[in-house]
């Protein structure tokens, strides 16, 4: 009991200090994230805007980019998605869910022997097309797959 109390107190203290630092301008969260998080792309509310922010507005279909996802997902809050690219010189993969309020779910860059294959679990708000974008040799490629989300969990 006492341990929990102590942790809570410590947590509160640390948060207070952080708030102080923020106010003093010592930590600037917006600056800290600007480099490694593509705010414009993640906060884009439609697919075209998101693709534009990724620089992928003119992505062409490619058969060597494959999405594995269930045809029907009973629980839209946990949908397993696996994307792999066999396009030579693929350097990054992005996963977008077209009907979500913010379509871009994630983007990964690969280097030093990492294979261009990623599996992830995402939220899908409604029956939606999932789109994967791969970047290879500076060009963008795309593929898509529809996932049906069952509402209420009893058939559909």
């Amino acid at each position: 009991m006492d341990m929990i109390r102590r942790t809570v107190l410590k947590g509160a203290g640390a948060t207070g200090m952080l708030a102080g630092l923020l106010a003093a301008g010592v930590l600037k969260p917006t600056l800290a994230y600007a480099e490694d998080w593509n705010k414009a792309a993640f906060e884009a509310k439609d697919i075209n805007e998101a693709l534009k922010s990724l620089g992928a507005a003119s992505a062409a279909d490619h058969k060597d980019l494959v999405i594995k996802a269930p045809e029907i997902a009973e629980n839209g809050s946990v949908v397993p998605v696996d994307v792999s690219s066999n396009i030579p010189n693929t350097t990054s993969i992005a996963i977008l869910i077209l009907k979500n309020p913010f379509p871009l779910s994630s983007q990964f860059e690969f280097s030093n022997g990492a294979m261009t294959d990623v599996s992830i679990r995402v939220k899908v708000a409604d029956t939606s097309v999932i789109r994967a974008i791969a970047k290879a040799d500076g060009k963008f490629y795309s593929t898509q797959k529809e996932v049906k989300v069952t509402v209420g969990g009893c058939g559909g």
Binding site: V78, S105, Q107, S111, N112, V118, S119, I120
Partner: peptide, 17 residues
């Protein structure tokens, strides 16, 4: 080896492979 960026539509308690 991997640098990833994620948004709020990644599921709670995320799993990555």
């Amino acid at each position: 080896v991997v640098s990833g960026q994620t948004g709020g539509s990644v599921s709670r308690n995320p799993v990555f492979g």
